[in-house]
Structure formats: structure tokens, C-alpha cells
């Protein structure tokens, strides 16, 4: 009798696992985006850290970072990999949050999820930042039965492609040690946007 009960339990657990994969990924995205905006527009001291911690709980951010590096992953020394992933995560988040910031808290409109295949989906959204509409598409993939963010496309510009092109160019003349140095400079230099290139 106990075996029968256990079998039914296992069967329903298995069923729920497969059902989870069929849940519309936009539901989780909606909740996550709302919470990210709430943190962003709160008066918190360390918004960036809080958002990274929150997003890491909701999604496996290493996936999008690994995708930005693409084939360059093999060019990175093993000792530098964890640090580079951490630094790029901060940089990508900076780009993402910069795109979401406005004078007032943006409104997000979610359109219907487009299923590209059984393991790929796109969630188109429109962000109204200071009343200006910005089209933002989340590209998602089913990884280990869970929808994970593979790419974010802001106004037709893919974060993954844009960063991957930069890494391709960077690794033609530089090493992973140089990348660590470059990323650290980018993330610490507060006056970077005012620095003179000439």
C-alpha cells in the first residue's frame, strides 16, 4: 500500500514538473520586472546589489553572461572565469537598468508570449519611460524545466549580440587578465562618461 502511495506521489510530482515548463513565462517576468522597478525606485542605499541578489534568486543569470561570451569562454583562463562572470553581470545589469531608468517609475505593458519552439519563447514588452515607449523583448529558453532569460533585446538591439561582438574584438589582441582589468575600470570609474578619448 505504501509503495502504491509513493508511486502516485512520484507520478504527480513528475506531472507538476512538466506542467511547470508549460506555464507562461511572462507571468514570472511580470512579477520580477515589477519587483526590480520597486527596488530601483526605492530609496535603498545599494540598489544595484539588491537587484542582482533578487534577480539571481529568480533567474540563473550565468546563462545570459555565458551567452555574451560565446566562443570566447574557452579563451578565458580558468582562474579568471568566476570573476569575469561576476563583473560582466554587474555591467550588463548596469546597461539594463540604465535602459529602464527614467525620471518617474516606468510603466510596463506585456504582450502575448510568442513560442518559437518548445524550448524557446519571446515575451515582448513596452516600457513607457517618461511617456516615451521603448520596446523590450525578453528571449527565454527552457533550461532544466525552468524558463531562463537567454537575451534581452532593447529597441532591436540584443544585449547578447552587442556584448559578444565586443568580446570577439577584445580577445583578438587581449587576454582574460586584460578583460578583468578593463571591467574593473569600467565599473569603478565614475567619471567614465566624461573622460576624454583624445
Amino acid at each position: 500500500m505504501n509503495i502504491l502511495k509513493l508511486s502516485f506521489l512520484a507520478f504527480f510530482f513528475c506531472l507538476s514538473n512538466n506542467l511547470f515548463a508549460t506555464i507562461d513565462p511572462s507571468i514570472q517576468l511580470k512579477e520580477t520586472s515589477e519587483n526590480v522597478l520597486n527596488i530601483l525606485y526605492s530609496n535603498s542605499q545599494d540598489t544595484e546589489k539588491e537587484i542582482i541578489e533578487y534577480l539571481s534568486k529568480e533567474y540563473n543569470l550565468d546563462i545570459i553572461i555565458r551567452r555574451t561570451l560565446g566562443r570566447n569562454w574557452n579563451k578565458i583562463e580558468e582562474g579568471h572565469r568566476a570573476k569575469i562572470v561576476k563583473l560582466i553581470k554587474q555591467l550588463v545589469l548596469l546597461a539594463y537598468l540604465d535602459g529602464m531608468s527614467g525620471k518617474s517609475k516606468p510603466e510596463i505593458e506585456f504582450s502575448n508570449t510568442r513560442y518559437i519552439s518548445s524550448k524557446r519563447a519571446e515575451v515582448p514588452t513596452t516600457l513607457y519611460i517618461d511617456n516615451k515607449p521603448i520596446v523590450l523583448v525578453y528571449r527565454l529558453g527552457l533550461v532544466q524545466g525552468k524558463w531562463e532569460i537567454l537575451d534581452i533585446v532593447i529597441e532591436n538591439i540584443s544585449i547578447v549580440i552587442t556584448y559578444r561582438k565586443q568580446f570577439d574584438a577584445f580577445f583578438t589582441n587581449n587576454s582574460s587578465k586584460d578583460l578583468v582589468k578593463k571591467l574593473e575600470t569600467l565599473l569603478t570609474d565614475e567619471n567614465l562618461d566624461q573622460s576624454l578619448p583624445l
Partner: peptide, 29 residues
């Protein structure tokens, strides 16, 4: 039951290293 259970858990194991085939990537990559 175990077969069904394992298929749900391990179906995406090949994606663990996040490398997707070119067809599964979006083409403009």
C-alpha cells in the same frame, strides 16, 4: 513513473553548459 520522472528532470541536461546549437540560437547571432 520513474521513467517519466527522469525524463522531466534530465530533458535539458545537454543545456547545462548553456551552449545551444546555431538553429536554436536566434539566427542573427
Amino acid at each position: 513513473t520513474m521513467l517519466l520522472f527522469s525524463s522531466g528532470i534530465f530533458a535539458d541536461n545537454f543545456n547545462l553548459d548553456y551552449e545551444f546549437s546555431e538553429e536554436e540560437n536566434w539566427s542573427d547571432d
